[in-house]
């Protein structure tokens, strides 16, 4: 067996081809070609789609749709997506960003998946030919997923309500110790009325910090008031251990970084 690439002009045809054993979708290839180069012989066939809609970015009002083939570089330089630029720029170095796609990032195992952390905080919807699923459901079932993701939709956050942080040891392009995205709505007096917090590297895939989200409600963003939320930030996490950091370390520093992000 060798590695072979099949190119299709429609998602429908590509989806059919993808059902064959040993076949995988080729996005930017930064993970799947890398695995083949490293001797992973489980993949013998790659499938790609040239349909232009997959590379399209559409922003109308707040409603945003990113095609699955949109690259991190395209997001980072798009004038209307400035709120997401920090998350897109957090992925790899410049060459990786020119290749890494939104679709591939949804499948990237920890310590990768930084952009998906941002998407999770936005409660994005993942689109396939079969329909639409909330990102959290999608992430839970992604290992068994065989359908091509065509795009992702979400409401573009206002810049002041959305925050993203990637913690890395090597700057500017190190792999994540962890990443955090928060989407907070606040009342006129500054108290938090709704909170979504997504974490990267705190499990094998991006996850929500539900306990911290609940504890933040009704708080103002002061060191004292957010303390109870930080105390429960690690609830339900099972961080990875890799050469960048141990699970223990990740759990120890999570509240510190979440606190800095909330108080920034």
């Amino acid at each position: 067996m060798t590695l072979a690439l099949q190119t299709f002009s429609t998602v429908k045809d590509a989806n059919m081809a993808l059902q064959a054993a040993g076949t995988r979708y080729l996005g930017g290839g930064t993970l799947v070609v890398r695995a083949a180069n490293e001797g992973d012989v489980s993949v013998s066939s790659l499938v790609r789609v040239t349909e232009p809609s997959l590379s399209a970015i559409a922003v109308s009002g707040g409603e945003t749709r990113l095609g699955a083939s949109v690259t991190m570089a395209a997001i980072a330089r798009h004038p209307e997506l400035a709120a997401l630029a920090p998350a897109a720029r957090a992925v790899g170095g410049p060459a990786i960003r020119n290749m890494a796609t939104v679709g591939g990032n949804l499948f990237a195992p920890a310590p990768y998946g930084d952009f998906t952390v941002a998407m999770l905080a936005l409660d994005a919807i993942v689109v396939t030919e079969d329909g639409q699923v909330p990102i959290q459901t999608f992430l839970a079932g992604r290992d068994a997923s065989r359908a091509i993701v065509t795009g992702i939709t979400f409401v573009l956050p206002r810049a002041e309500s959305f925050r993203f942080l990637k913690v890395a040891r090597v700057k500017p392009k190190g792999v994540s110790v962890l990443s955090i995205a928060t989407l907070l709505q606040r009342a006129a007096d500054g108290t938090v009325t709704s909170a979504r917090i997504a974490l990267g590297c705190m499990a094998d895939r991006p996850m929500r910090a539900r306990a911290a989200e609940r504890a933040l409600l009704g708080c103002r963003l002061t060191a004292e008031e957010i303390a109870p939320a930080l105390a429960v930030a690690g609830e339900g996490t099972s961080p990875i251990t890799d050469p960048i950091a141990s699970a223990w370390y990740r759990n120890e520093v999570l509240p510190v970084h979440l606190g800095r992000l909330l108080l920034a």
Binding site: T7, G29, V33, R34, N37, G92, P94, A95, I96, N98
Partner: peptide, 25 residues
């Protein structure tokens, strides 16, 4: 051959790319 060193960097249509992770076809 993993995208991590950049020694294989080339410019494709004006953009920096890693030739080790790009399929020729």
């Amino acid at each position: 051959h993993q995208g991590t060193c950049g020694a294989c960097s080339v410019i494709i249509d004006g953009e920096l790319r890693l030739s080790c992770l790009t399929l020729a076809e």
